Every structure is written in structure tokens, then in C-alpha cells.
Amino acid sequence: MKLNPTLDPDELHQRYKALGRISIPKVLDAEDAKALRKAIDREPHKNLVFFANGKHFDIDAAGWRDLDAEKVGTTEDIIYVEAQKGFSYYYENIPVYDRWKAGTELGSQLKAAVEFLNAEPFLNFVRRVTGFGDIAFADAQATLYGPGHFLTLHNDAVEGKNRRAAFVLNLTKEWREDWGGYLNFFDEDGHIEGAFMPSFNTLNMFSVPAAHSVGFVSPFAGETRVSITGWLRAGEDQD
């Protein structure tokens, strides 16, 4: 995998420091981006993660899709009630970094993606863009938000994780403005002060902490919001 060689990290840093966030289109070689999206689509072992009844659930996504509509609807009702209370989530994922670190099953293209994110060319690029010179590694998961999925308001700050910035490498092929699923940023009064549309081969980054959410994906959305997302972290990975 290769970064777009025309990107100027010093110019991008000037944009980043103004708001503490940035959206960078055409970040990867175009063919690499297409191949990575295909690898996520083909990956047979996807999880469904959600928060319900005060607990985190991580289940087989294929098994969930095989459930009858009544069971799915009942569970979704519980998920949505939970989301009224505060931080909550509901989406599919592939824990690519965790699988890579553990040496468990992971397709060659996804393995290459994790290695790319943790190789010096990418790490040096994001250090220069964000201004965080101590970024040492990037953890990551592939996320897939379909109709009804969401990630509620939070700020990514977790003690001991040394998260300097969050990143979202978007691999969504096409998206309409009214399908939801935007990466939203909020001011102290709860107003949306900025938002990034899911756009193919675009890298979004923002400093931690930052109040943000992934908006509810509309039931009539005609695509899946696909990305590789994670955190750019300092220190050693102790997880």
C-alpha cells in the first residue's frame, strides 16, 4: 500500500491545527484503496457489536443476519432504548489490529493494511499533519455501518491509552447527503460545528479529546458506510 505522493504534510498541518481536525481526499493510491475495500467486503468473519442492557455484545454478524425479523427487531428495540441513556453503538466490525497482533486469521490485504498503518511512511505522515511527534503506532478496526447503525456522542479520551488523534480511512463507494452516517463534531452547546461525509479514499483525523458521533444511518441508505478506523497512539501498546 502507498500514500498519494502529491500530498504535502506541512500544508495539511496548517489546515489541521486551525480546527484540530482534517479531511484528506485521495490519500491512498487509487488501486490500493479499491483492493482494500474489496478485502473488507470479502472478509467472512465479521462481528456485530452493540451495547444493550448495560453490556457490550460482540457476536457473529452472519449469525445475526440469519435471525428472523422478530428477534432482530426486539433486540434493536433494546439497543435503541439503551442509546437514549448515553454512550452506545451498533455496527459491524472486523478487529483487524487485534487479529494481526494475535496472529489469528486475517486476509493478506487486511494484514497489509495494518502493517501499512504501522510502518514509518504513514506514521511519519500523520505525525507531521497532526503535530503529534510522539505517535508510535496505530490500532485499527474495519467498521461497517448499515441502515439503523450508529455511534453516539463521546470524546475518545480513555486514561492510559495515550490517544493523540483518531483516524477514519473512508472506503465508502457512494453516499448521499440524506443517508446519515456523517462524522459529526459538536461544540459546548451541543450544536454541530462540523461534519465529514463518508467519501471514498478519504482520511479523516482529529485530535483527542473531541466530542463527536457517527450519525444514525437512515433505513433507506443504499450503501454501507465502510472504513478502517482507530487511534494514533503514543508509547507502547500495553493492551
Score class of each variant (00 low, 15 high):
100 W>E: 11
103 G>E: 02
103 G>M: 04
106 L>R: 06
107 G>K: 08
108 S>K: 15
108 S>I: 12
108 S>A: 12
109 Q>S: 13
109 Q>W: 11
109 Q>C: 13
112 A>N: 13
115 E>C: 08
116 F>C: 06
117 L>H: 03
117 L>F: 11
119 A>C: 10
119 A>V: 09
120 E>V: 14
121 P>L: 06
123 L>A: 05
125 F>I: 02
126 V>T: 13
130 T>A: 00
130 T>R: 03
131 G>Y: 08
133 G>C: 04
134 D>H: 04
135 I>Y: 07
137 F>T: 08
138 A>D: 11
138 A>Q: 06
139 D>V: 06
140 A>Q: 05
140 A>I: 03
140 A>W: 08
143 T>I: 09
148 G>N: 07
148 G>P: 03
150 F>I: 11
151 L>E: 07
151 L>I: 09
154 H>L: 01
154 H>G: 07
154 H>V: 01
156 D>P: 12
158 V>P: 15
159 E>L: 08
160 G>A: 07
162 N>E: 14
163 R>P: 09
165 A>L: 00
166 A>M: 06
167 F>Y: 03
167 F>M: 00
168 V>K: 01
169 L>H: 00
169 L>R: 01
172 T>Q: 01
177 E>Q: 14
179 W>R: 11
180 G>Y: 10
185 F>W: 07
187 D>Y: 01
188 E>T: 13
192 I>C: 07
192 I>T: 15
194 G>T: 12
199 S>A: 14
200 F>W: 09
201 N>A: 10
202 T>M: 01
204 N>G: 09
204 N>H: 14
206 F>A: 00
206 F>V: 03
207 S>M: 08
207 S>E: 04
208 V>L: 00
209 P>L: 01
209 P>R: 00
209 P>T: 00
209 P>C: 03
210 A>H: 03
212 H>Q: 03
214 V>M: 07
216 F>V: 11
217 V>M: 09
221 A>H: 04
222 G>I: 11
223 E>F: 10
224 T>Y: 10
224 T>P: 10
225 R>G: 10
225 R>S: 03
226 V>E: 09
228 I>T: 02
